[in-house]
Amino acid sequence: MMSARDKCIYFISLHRTGLTVSLLTAALLLYPLYEDNPYTLGITNLIAINTMVVLGLNLFIGYTGQISLGHAAFFGLGAYGSAISTATYGLSPWPAMLLVALLVGLVALLIGVPILRLSGHYLAMATLGFNFVVHSVLLEWDEMTGGPSGFSGIPYLGVGDFSFDNEVRLHYLLWGFTLMGLLLSLNLVRSGVGRGLAALAEDETAAAALGVNTRNAKIKVFVLSAVMASIAGSLFAHCYTFISPDSFGIFTSTDMVIMVVVGGMGSIWGSLFGAGLLTLLPEVIGIFETYKDFVHGIILVLVLMFLPQGLVTGLVDMVRVRLALRRREAQ
């Protein structure tokens, strides 16, 4: 017979994902009541947007074992797609967002089919090259994109007369989307498809031998992650109402991958932590203005050196080892 305490622990461990998501949702619902400083909310909103991109990218990196150094391109295509279709062609924002996400998904499919035949460093270069091309076009095609000076006058998103035009309203909008992305990812990786993907990340040949269609799986996840990046890009455009090509260069792409690696490849919760830590970091170390890059680099290097499996997985493993050691000592 289980004691009441054991039952409680069993219940928690059985429903740990659902409970964590509910706790997070509750915390996010209450957060603006406690924190109403627009600057701080602006930072947490940026974390929400980055988390969206990083979630998709982590599915691609952590669950198919591939690398993409070009996700800022999809992010940028989403942002500029929404900006141009709403501000220049007067489409209404929600259908525009959907349309742009579909188009970006199509672009990802078209380049994914040939690109995903590559592997390792070749894939890294190909995606980097794609990002480079998109960034150059955003910079040079100035009659459409506004060129280096950027694109302004993007409308806010809204429902009826209600418009998401201040930090508190944006907080609920952005985190709503991010939580949906989080739930989608958590459920996906626990489905049969997700298990197949995890096998693919570990060993492509073994996964193929067990009947996972590795080629199709890679392309599907690539398209899914591009669509998530595109939606995040659309939200980014409607949230700031101004965008410029600087936000979508190759450095953004490497930042996104760094968030994945620091959070932990293949760890969905890690995406949230990685995006949170690396978005907060420049704000926190802003006080050391002159040493900013230096400190940023050092923290990154230390995390990768001592917790190479990522912050979340690494710390959880560390606690587990400690607990196991203590239990043995107690015996």
Binding site: T254, I258, V295, I298, L300, L304, M305
Partner: peptide, 15 residues
């Protein structure tokens, strides 16, 4: 991880 370690070192060196 090693590749991104070199990215991190590159940021430090540039700093």
């Amino acid at each position: 991880v090693l590749i991104f370690l070199t990215v991190g070192i590159s940021i430090i060196l540039r700093g």
